[in-house]
Design a protein around this nucleic acid. Structure first.
Lengths: 146, 146
DNA sequence: AAGCGTATTTAGAATAATTCTAATTCTCAC
DNA sequence: GTGAGAATTAGAATTATTCTAAATACGCTT
């Protein structure tokens, strides 16, 4: 139960298992992400990494992160790098991003569902909004929306 | 059932109900968002608005959108304007953004829940990933995470 | 161990989305 | 109509991210 102190061998192992070269840079980036589970931004990661490897460049941190995300060792929390979109549908609903077309479809959900999701929160959490987003492929014109 | 053709009076009405001045700019921005429910980006909104009001500025579109979102007439789809964050938790889980501290907490969810959400999708939709994000306030240190 | 081809890293420039600023214009209540 | 506050404008500034081209490191072959 101490993922914070992964050592060189373990980190290398993990990277190799994903068929990526275990470069020192990738290792350090992975290490700092595993060390503190606080969902750091790239800037924060860059700062932490630099304290261990002062010569690393920001571009490399971006590169490493991309690699780590691709091979599934790390997850991106704000998937959406694309510009903000707006939506006049005020009912509770989810969104479906079609990876193929880039379109965003509304998915109407049973009013209950959203409420039930809220109830899943542990005590101490009080949510004022819920966002549910799917990503994937949609049939050409799934439900006549256009 | 024709929200596409909201007229001047209706739009004004809607704005006034929210205690915002019904300026022509706000009216046009609202109109174009209601006209075509395709989750446009700011750029797209700007283009559509300009065709009706060529002198409007991009900054105004941003201002109007902020107002409309604040008063609940329009929703933002990619809430996250903040930088992308990274997370080493590979289990199915949701995220909770604490509005007060800006921190992001992992919320472990019953493995079933995520699966059940997928089943809510209408036929023709095939999701490869689901993202569930709560926003609100959390007790100081909800479950000892730090 | 030297050489080679490829992958990776690097610094800095470029881009894209958004926010800020300060001046001007508009609106509404009086 | 006037005046105070709100909204709009153009353009600069900021922020996050991606691109580019050159340098470097790596692992494989010999």
């Amino acid at each position: 139960m101490k993922p914070e102190t992964e050592n060189h061998a373990t980190l290398c192992q993990r990277l190799k298992e994903c068929d990526v070269r275990p470069t020192p840079q990738r290792e350090v980036v992975l290490k700092v992400i595993l060390a503190k589970r606080d969902h750091p931004t790239v800037d924060e990661i860059f700062a932490r990494v630099k304290s261990q490897m002062p010569t690393i460049s920001l571009a490399t941190v971006y590169n490493c992160l991309e690699t780590l995300v691709q091979c599934g060792l790390v997850r991106q929390v704000n998937l959406e790098r694309a510009p903000t979109r707006y939506c006049p549908n005020l009912h509770e609903h989810a969104h479906f991003h079609d990876d193929t077309t880039g379109q965003v479809h509304d998915i109407d959900l049973p009013a209950e569902t959203m409420k039930r999701l809220q109830e899943l929160l542990p005590p101490g959490f009080d949510a004022s909004s819920v966002e549910l987003t799917f990503r994937g492929r949609a049939a050409d014109n799934p439900h006549g929306t256009n």
